[in-house]
Design a protein around this nucleic acid. Structure first.
Lengths: 333, 333
DNA sequence: ATCGTGGTGTGTATCGTTACAAATCGCTTC
DNA sequence: GAAGCGATTTGTAACGATACACACCACGAT
């Protein structure tokens, strides 16, 4: 494989001139540039990124750590993050953490090996106990719940308000016995506990009794988990007329699970999700959901990180909560 | 940021000894190792991957180029590829090509810059004309249609046979007027043309007249594309009783589009897809489809690439066509 | 006492690129 | 004709890690 030196020799110039051509430095005579470019072409030369990264001290790559790439929400977010980063000349490496604390930490460690210039971390497994570990020298943006007091930028979804609005929407549509299908860790400051709080707040505000038997804990954040939870609710005989689901993925499974039991949506039971994944628009019935503005999340995440990379000395960690809107579709019609 | 030299100084050994500890070389005294590890810990040292890559001439990273990460088929495949590569100690970088020829080539070029040790390329935009460009020194595995004569490993889906089986299944279920919703380039040797051929072959074999008005070209390989095509079919007044879709993603949009027009599935029209994405199991009605064995595809792709990286001198390009099975669900019940 | 042997540890020389400073060139100006 | 001044070009010296070959050491065999 040809190196920059080979090109220099072939073009009859110094290696530095070749480098200058490659990096589009201004003061290179047109004729020289042509000669160098021709040599590059003749030899099929490609710059060696490892050497460049070493010398430059940067990789032009950012990491994006998510629980699972194949969850529509993250896949769709990743596509946006990649597109936006690409515009700014950055490559994106997706790391799968499996919602596992160890792996989330290892993603951080990866970035400390200078593999990434910065990291966008969709944190699920980290808790306040990990705040020290987040104190890295590598720029980082956290997506998800705030790890209290950690000195990093942070983008939160409107978890409580969104779920509150979703629940209100069901009540407005006439539901009175509303179930919630949620994650498995209500105790921590987490997506689950926040969304649970939004649900409770709406019920209380409207004077509806929060029946504990209406709350189902998922075993798995997936359509299959949603389907099983729906079966459980129906088989248990709770006469519900509405279901708030912690995510769209789960909600689609719930609709399926209700269909399995001959319960019609929205006729017998109305269903609302959270995330507005693409699939929500195409299910039968289409899914009412909370749209947390993915575009804004992706844009903010990348822009905050890039701003940090630009290394302004007066940087202060910021916290953002994105907006949302209720998208009413057939499942609550 | 501490370097290996700093660690060496702190531990009172030579840089090489630190390197030996890091790389788990055998002949290091236990006591020395401890001392080095302590110094590493004290200084918070992390190896600089760029330097290591440069020196080693490898990156321990493979590229995976797909049209779009947020298409369920590719997201689900990517998750499997990542998992399998991780087991073998490789990191995976996902590149989005947007099904664009230029970008597919640029993914190849990336790997020529030695950013990746190898590349798995889900080729859609490449054609036979690009065969020379595929003659790289970097190990590569192509997923998708064969670029004739190119000297690379290649994994094909059972496109024709799978669609043939799907169409046969519809016929066996009593359909006689079967539409096909397909991609936009039937002329090339491509997924579209192969799946089209499978559809035609089944019709002909059973003596059904292939009505050209039953074939709809997608404008977009997405649920939205499927939905519009379904509208088109219905609005055109073709009295169809079955639809073969080029992918599951499209099929789910078709089911939605039929619902928009009050056509019931499977009562009025039966629908079959291709890919067996996760969502096919949870739609209402659940989707009959062709399962091309994703696990095998991912496993093969990674294993072929790794075998190639192991650099056996007697390597010969291989072509694999994976198996498949018809998964009958409600949409053709 | 000498030699060999295997386990440990250490210089040296890169890997390919680029920052920086310094050198050289071509041309105008006095 | 010499000085002056940008525009171009070129050495030099890293960036941080590791392959390789060699040096050292202790201990048992001869």
């Amino acid at each position: 494989m040809a190196t920059l030196h080979d090109v220099a020799k072939a073009a009859g110039v110094s290696p530095m001139t070749v480098s200058n051509v490659l990096n589009k430095h201004p003061h290179v005579r047109a004729e020289t540039r042509e000669r160098v470019l021709k040599a590059i072409d003749d030899l099929g030369y490609r710059v060696n990124v490892a050497a460049r990264n070493l010398r430059a001290g940067r990789t032009n790559t950012i990491g994006f750590a998510v629980p699972e790439v194949d969850r529509p929400y993250f896949a769709q977010l990743a596509a946006r993050v990649i597109a936006r980063a690409q515009d700014a000349g950055y490559r994106v490496v997706i790391e799968q953490t499996g919602a596992d604390r160890e792996n989330e930490l290892s993603a951080i460690v990866s970035s400390r090996t200078r593999m990434y210039d910065g990291l966008i971390l969709s944190a699920v497994g980290l808790g306040s106990a990990d705040r020290d570990l987040l104190t890295t020298d590598v720029p980082m943006v956290i997506l998800g719940e705030s790890v209290f007091g950690s000195p990093v930028d942070h983008i939160a979804l409107p978890n409580e308000d969104g779920t509150y609005a979703a629940t209100m929407h069901l009540i407005d549509q006439g539901c009175r016995r509303i179930a919630m299908i949620e994650g498995d860790d209500v105790s921590r400051l987490s997506v689950t506990s926040l969304r649970h709080a939004g649900y409770r707040r709406a019920l209380e505000e409207r004077g509806l009794d929060p029946d504990p038997s209406f709350v189902v804990e998922l075993h798995e954040l997936s359509p299959e988990g949603g389907r099983r939870s729906a079966h459980e609710l129906v088989d248990r005989g709770s006469a519900i007329d509405g279901v708030v689901c912690i995510t769209d993925t789960v909600a689609l499974g719930v609709i399926r699970g209700l269909a399995d039991r001959g319960v019609s949506v929205p006729g017998d039971v109305k269903v609302v999700g959270f995330d507005d994944i693409l699939e929500a628009r195409y299910s039968v019935p289409s899914l009412t959901t909370i749209d947390p503005d993915h575009d804004e999340v992706a844009r903010l995440a990348v822009d905050l990180l890039l701003a940090r990379l630009a290394d302004s000395p007066d940087w202060q960690p910021k916290e953002h909560v994105t907006g949302f809107r209720v998208v009413a579709r057939e499942s609550t019609g």
